[in-house]
Design a protein around this nucleic acid. Structure first.
Lengths: 209, 209
DNA sequence: GTCTATATCGCGATAGAC
DNA sequence: GTCTATCGCGATATAGAC
């Protein structure tokens, strides 16, 4: 019976969600050490002391932020699991999904990127346990396609790195891209062009013989 | 006459260089706000107060670090300027040079990446004045190749973004790559495989008709 | 759960002797 | 140029009233 009640969002849940949302923004803009709890609390509309009631330490808040980022991302990246479609279409869907995430949640991508660039001092264990197995699963899918002769042989691990890098960069390096393109922020057309190019160069190699 | 004397590295120059070197490492590991001057000074073997004699403020030190990173990088990236070679070989050289930089100076790449991801709050003007013109010049080279019918038509700007992202990621995301590959740090063979794949997928598209 | 008040600390930066 | 000493600030975190 308690379970039934738990399904209704209590004030605590919505408040925690609001704090987490503003924490993502802050960490993306100024990093872990550069973000002040007082500033995050102010954005979320409560006192710093009150924020510490919900998240006892800064590090716990940070880990919860990354948990949410990762859960959200992993949920959206299950595209390759659908084995009913052909490789090219699956890869299109995969690139599309990853680019959409970069467009719709750039701050989430940036917080994760900064953690990895810093050597993942806090979140390394979770990356090893949650992200790496998923990447390896996707790499295994590529391998099976090659074994079945559906695509040309290729180094699947580095292909995955390449796809990851190209899609991720439209969130992480959007500042630099905007300076090159002459407008900010990146718009829908930029992402359409990006997807077109990434799909093209990846598919061109996959179909090569 | 004074000039002749200046060519001999004075103690000040070598000390500043040593400080900058350790500052790059610190900023790459913990970011701007997360790095303490006392820690950088300790790495370099002098007192915090003494460090502040050479670099009056933390921000000045940080900008000098980025200046050095960029100068070094721009110097190495003049590959496309050589118009005597054919496009494919030039592009190979370009990718090779950028990957070498990621391998030999990963910390430099990471400091720059974190600054860009954060929205370039401190170094944005320098990026606009020094990096963007260079990228646009390289993009113009691609355009000329297309105009001359040497390579297949393609969105050159996003092709540049793609090459940048793929090569850059071998410095910035090496922590995650090491977890996937099962060994750290990345070794020479990893970079050979990376270069092979990046060249393949880019060239495959360039030669497509 | 939210508030006021405060403890405790590390940081960047400065002053001044030598 | 290097040293000792210290200022002033902002940070995380805690204590306790309501």
């Amino acid at each position: 019976m308690d379970r039934a009640v738990d399904k209704i969002p209590r004030p605590r849940d919505v408040l925690e969600a609001r704090i987490l949302q503003h924490a993502v923004e802050a960490f993306a803009e100024t990093g872990y050490a550069g973000s002040a709890l007082a500033n995050i609390a102010e954005r979320a509309g409560l006192s710093k002391q009150n924020l510490l009631y919900y998240f006892p330490t800064k590090q716990i808040l940070y880990q919860r932020v990354l948990d949410q980022v990762l859960d959200h991302w992993l949920e959206r990246m299950q595209v390759l699991a659908d084995a009913t479609q052909d490789p090219v279409q699956l890869l299109r869907n995969y690139i599309h999904a990853k680019l959409r995430f970069s467009r719709e949640h750039p701050q989430a991508s940036r917080v994760y990127a900064m953690e990895v660039i810093s050597g993942a001092p806090i979140y390394g264990n979770s990356i090893r346990d949650k992200v790496v197995p998923l990447l390896q699963k996707d790499i295994a899918v590529f391998e099976s396609w090659i074994a079945q002769g559906k695509i040309a042989p290729i180094n699947t691990t580095h292909l995955m790195f390449a796809i990851w890098a190209m899609t991720q960069s439209y969130a992480d390096f959007s500042t630099q891209m905007s300076l090159v393109l002459g407008h900010a922020p990146l718009n829908e057309q930029d992402f359409v062009e990006a997807e077109k190019l990434i799909v093209e160069i990846v598919v061109a190699r996959m179909m090569a013989h």
